[in-house]
């Protein structure tokens, strides 16, 4: 009888702990991320203002970038500083963010995704929002920018990533302005398939998240190519230069 009572209480406690675990993972972690995103939204607005002011002062601000009204900079039809349009495609760059710093906003209208992105993919950083792999270029720069995010916990920014299809658009706003990407490929790989992060010609963004939902067994990967933004002429010229000897 005593054994049964102990067993009963053990089961009740185990059940309570499992329920607490599920409540924490599915709801509690969302609160952590929601609070972190509020702070990050202010940080990223500050970064946009600071970086844009610096780039305008240096005459390196993209001429046709759409600038939010809340910032102090304005749009310009020519290259600031010189007053003339440069002869060849210009590569517009921005300062590399610090580890854990908010540096951009990712928006995917189709799945109602709108999150501030952080620099870094360590456990703590990803609790605040989607994270950028620091050893890959920033979104909108030449190469392959890799962004990872949670699928079911910590705000689940990439919960509906599987609903995206080839051709859907991803918009990333950084200090340089809006970079628009079109999805070219969606695939499911193993967590060890690091080849999806390899550099690519042109300008690409790769989104990675856990797959299937509620499991970290595989990774859902979305690869999208830049179709509009300050560095599109540069990325296109890079591709053309590569293809020229072949034609």
């Amino acid at each position: 009888m005593k054994t049964l009572r102990i067993l009963g209480w053990t089961m009740i406690w185990a059940g309570g702990i499992i329920l607490a675990f599920l409540a924490y993972q599915l709801f509690g972690t969302n609160l952590i991320t929601s609070r972190a995103q509020d702070v990050a939204a202010e940080e990223v607005a500050d970064r946009f203002t600071e970086v844009r002011e610096e780039l305008v002062a240096d005459g390196q601000f993209p001429p046709e970038v759409i600038v939010d009204d809340s910032t102090t900079t304005t749009t310009s039809s020519t290259t600031p500083g010189t007053g003339t349009v440069p002869p060849g495609p210009v590569l517009y760059e921005e300062p590399t963010p610090e580890e854990g710093e908010a540096f951009g906003i990712i928006t995917i209208a189709k799945i109602d995704l709108d999150h501030v992105m952080m620099e870094g993919v360590d456990r703590e950083t990803l609790k605040s929002g989607p994270g950028h792999m620091p050893w890959t270029p920033l979104p909108g720069q030449p190469g392959n920018a890799v962004i990872s995010g949670h699928r079911t916990t910590y705000g689940a920014p990439f919960y509906d990533l599987d609903l995206l299809e080839v051709g859907d658009e991803i918009v990333v706003e950084t200090a340089l302005g809006d970079h628009v990407f079109a999805i070219r490929e969606t695939l499911v790989v193993l967590p060890t398939d690091v080849w999806v992060t390899n550099p690519k010609r042109g300008s690409w963004i790769t989104l990675t998240t856990c797959h299937p939902r509620f499991s970290a067994r595989e990774r859902l990967v979305i690869q999208a190519e830049l179709i509009d933004g300050p560095n599109l002429p540069y990325a296109q010229a890079e591709i053309d230069e590569f293809l020229e000897p072949m034609s």
């Binding site: 675990f21 993972q25 949670h150 916990t153 910590y154 790989v189 690091v194 856990c210 970290a216």
Partner: peptide, 24 residues
């Protein structure tokens, strides 16, 4: 101890989707 357990078990549900780590 419970928080550590939750964090560890949470990684089995969703590790953050990073490529390049060992399968959970």
């Amino acid at each position: 101890a419970l928080m550590f357990l939750f964090e560890w078990a949470g990684d089995l549900l969703d590790s953050g989707g990073v490529i390049g780590e060992a399968p959970a």
